[in-house]
Design a protein around this nucleic acid. Structure first.
Lengths: 351, 351
DNA sequence: GTGAAAGCGCTAACAA
DNA sequence: TTGTTAGCGCTTTCAC
């Protein structure tokens, strides 16, 4: 098979501009110590010849690969794709990540790794060896996985951990889950609700705890009791079907579900009991995946700014590579509340 | 910045196995002319050291980059991501493409290119120069774009064109749109419908024509007239709102929409007119994006096997690289019909 | 401020 | 069947 060569290389540019390879390289990499006139001449040649550096060659000689790897859990991701129920976590990461990468001459590459396997280390090492990414973006549950974190750290790869504040190497980013839960709770309080239940997510997700915290804080702030108002779900539809009745029986006039699936289940339970949403029961959900737009009624939901947080993660990784400082504490990208038709003032006054 | 070197290189393996670099290379690339015992020895060392070839280095010297680029239309893709309405075209491509790539040691990388700009050529050339992919998978409308096709062909990059049968370089793949439309039509005929309308897609998409063809063929086959039963949409909700009334007024008891958005619009129109779906009007849609599962009623839809066709495209590109033969004509990956609750026998007998 | 030389990890071509 | 040699396009020294 013929060796496929680059159409236009740095050599062509150098020849065209009448300078050395090195000067061209300096211009490409925006290094100092190049006279403006030289720079202009080189850039003219680059534009004229349509030169674009080969990412493979850049990696070979230099320290950067211009590749950032978005690491997701294999099983969960594939399951989401297969189900075709509109989970768009990966799309939102691409939206925020690809576009931001492109602005800086980087590429985002999606990689799936199996958490449950005992070969995490092998799989991950293989991905690193093959691609040699400059940075890795970790999503839950990977972002809190010490094995993964220390492996990447040891390999000298910058990492951004979304949805984890556990101390350790890497940039930590959250989507302000506590703020979000408080915001959601306040919205319901303002509508006049006093019995506001929360269906929590599984506690091995850090964010489940934060959401509980935020809700509890807002309830306290409003002088409301949380007695009997907390149910333990696990993000599944089934768990929602178990939890919603508990809260309704305990007198909740509004329910906040820690994800959309459990909110949908709550809607289902309400319908089965002949309760009208939002009149008899307000339902508020977390994540704002596409499905909530098509629910009846469309759900009021906390919007997870996945695209924004991924964009920020990419920027921070690139900053780190460029030697610019890193943030000390966790970076919070603030969530918003999309108010739709599933929340309203309670019809009956609470006791 | 320190030069970041590969932890384990082909050299380490060669040293460990006591053979030359070349022999290791031959084993990695599954080349012939290596004695089984040598091969075993090398493979043992590879496993022991956890060696994985650097994709950048492979590209530098060889002819392969082990990268396949999935090219999508920038504007449409980003719009879909922003809207968060569950369009999962990209996810399905990743599902089929990434997994199949992984099986062969390749990676899939998503790239967005702006069709409308006059810089297609520049953007695309830049992407090629930067990544030097072994193959490119084109989706509509790119897959029929002669400018893109000839550019890639000239660069010696294998390409797979999904959704286009226009002659020219590259492997052509379709999802049997004519078969699908005929299948959908027959389903309605079997239910007893005689006035079956079609809302067509824009004619600059090849597949719009195929869907019309399939519908027309099935109608002919059943001895039914298509008079007044064809409306010209453009895939938008708005166009669905315009077209559906035309067909209903022309006596349609069933409507096939060429995509989900127009089907949703049809549902909306039916509701506005007090028509019950499926009793007064059957609605059948194309694509089966997630949204149709959440419609009321859930829509019967033609399932576009995007994951399967992408997987096939990847396989064919890899085959081409390996010197294995290519298919002559277009490759058809057959669609299926997901029967849900929006189709039923017509209540009133047609005149 | 600029250029020349060395080498990144791997494979193609050729020699043994 | 195996090993040796010469690059691929770029960046990193280090010299000027």
């Amino acid at each position: 098979m013929a060796r496929r060569k680059q159409a236009v290389t740095i050599k062509h540019v150098a020849a065209d501009a009448g300078v050395s390879l090195q000067t061209v390289s300096r211009v490409i990499n925006k290094e100092p110590n190049v006279r403006p006139e030289m720079m202009a001449r080189v850039q003219a040649s680059i534009a004229k010849l349509g030169y674009v550096p080969s990412i493979a060659a850049q990696r070979m000689s230099g320290s950067r690969s211009y590749l950032i790897m978005a690491l997701n859990d294999r099983e969960r991701t594939i399951e989401g794709w297969r189900a075709r129920e509109g989970t768009d976590w990966v799309d939102q990461m691409l939206l925020g990540g690809m576009l931001t990468c492109a602005e800086h001459g980087y590429r985002l590459i999606v990689e799936l790794v199996d958490t449950h396997s005992d070969h995490i280390e092998r799989e991950l090492s293989a991905a690193i060896a093959a691609l040699q990414p400059d940075g890795v973006i970790l999503t839950p549950p990977h972002s809190a996985n010490p094995e993964i974190i220390s492996l990447l750290d040891a390999a000298g790869i910058d990492l951004a951990r979304i949805g984890s504040v556990i101390a350790g190497p890497g940039i930590r980013l959250t989507m302000g889950d506590d703020l979000a839960a408080a915001m959601a709770t306040r919205h319901l309080v303002e509508l006049g609700h006093r019995r506001i239940g929360l269906i929590a997510g599984p506690l091995d997700y850090e964010l489940s705890g934060w959401r509980i915290d935020g809700w509890r804080a807002a309830m306290d702030e409003a002088g409301l009791s949380t007695e009997g108002m907390l149910a333990q779900g696990d993000f599944s539809i089934e768990s929602g079907r178990m939890c919603a009745p508990q809260l309704i029986d305990a007198g909740a006039t509004a329910i906040i579900a820690s994800n959309d699936q459990m909110a949908l289940a709550t809607l289902e339970v309400a319908r089965a009991r002949g309760l009208s949403v939002p009149d008899d029961l307000s339902v508020l959900s977390f994540d704002d995946t596409p499905v909530v737009r098509f629910a009846h009624p469309p759900l009021t939901a906390v919007v997870q700014p996945i695209a924004a947080v991924t964009a920020r993660a990419v920027e921070l990784i690139i900053d780190a590579r460029a030697g610019r400082g890193l943030p000390d504490g966790p970076v919070v990208v603030e969530p918003t509340l999309a108010i739709r038709d599933s929340t309203a003032p309670p019809v009956a006054e609470p006791l």
